[in-house]
């Protein structure tokens, strides 16, 4: 890019718009890795819990959920450290991170309270929160499939959670994981 070049107003605006769009694409494409990582992790973890619970008939396998942040956060740090370490954090990316961070804290604290203090419907609540966070992400990314996907996951999942048997409810998280990973792939393609 040349340093001195007379630009018209139109050229200047075009340059701003193109530079901004290219930078945003690169940053959001980088953010898509987080969605894919957590989606795959949620899918795998839910299947492990489901099959272990199903095979043994023991609900104690649900305690494995608490290992998810312990596995996910180091992996996430590793993933972002390894590649594209120069890609900065955009305001949109930061907002997405905050939404999912809040979801993570709510889910962890609520689950801990429901397991150890006051029995509460965990799957119903977490799947609703998951759908809500997903839809908010869609609003931030201005992406209708993600908004609708989150709505179906949250509301549909909450309804299904009240109808399904307890061990089968775990499969709703498998669905949630698939939706999350699909979101990552949509973002990756959208900002190619």
């Amino acid at each position: 890019m040349e340093q001195i070049k007379e630009m018209t107003a139109q050229e200047s605006l075009k340059l701003i718009s193109e530079t901004l769009n290219n930078s945003r694409r690169s940053i959001l494409r980088n953010n898509s890795k987080g969605f894919i990582l957590w989606g795959v992790l949620l899918t795998v973890m839910s299947l492990v819990v489901y099959f272990a619970w199903h095979a043994t008939g023991n609900a104690v396998w649900n305690l494995l959920w608490f290992a998810m942040p312990a596995i996910g956060y180091p992996l996430s740090m590793l993933l972002y450290k390894k590649k594209d370490s120069t890609v900065p954090q955009s305001f949109v990316g930061k907002l997405l991170g905050q939404v999912w961070g809040v979801f993570g804290v709510f889910s962890l604290v609520f689950s801990a309270l429901a397991v150890f203090v006051v029995p509460m419907p965990i799957t119903f609540t977490i799947v609703l929160l998951l759908g809500l966070a997903e839809s908010i992400s869609g609003v931030i990314l201005k992406n209708w499939p993600i908004i609708i996907g989150g709505f179906i996951l949250g509301v549909g999942g909450a309804v299904a959670a009240t109808l399904l048997k307890t061990d089968a409810q775990i499969l709703l998280f498998t669905l949630g994981g698939i939706v999350l990973a699909a979101t990552g792939l949509i973002v990756k393609c959208q900002y190619k």
Binding site: M1, E2, Q3, I4, K5, M7, S12, L15, I16, T19, L20, S23, R24, I27, P88, Q89, S90, F91, K94
Partner: peptide
């Protein structure tokens, strides 16, 4: 009003 400086500012306006 210079191509490179404007591009740098455009990028920095959108990131921390």
């Amino acid at each position: 009003h210079s191509e490179l400086r404007l591009a740098v500012m455009s990028i920095l306006a959108d990131v921390e």
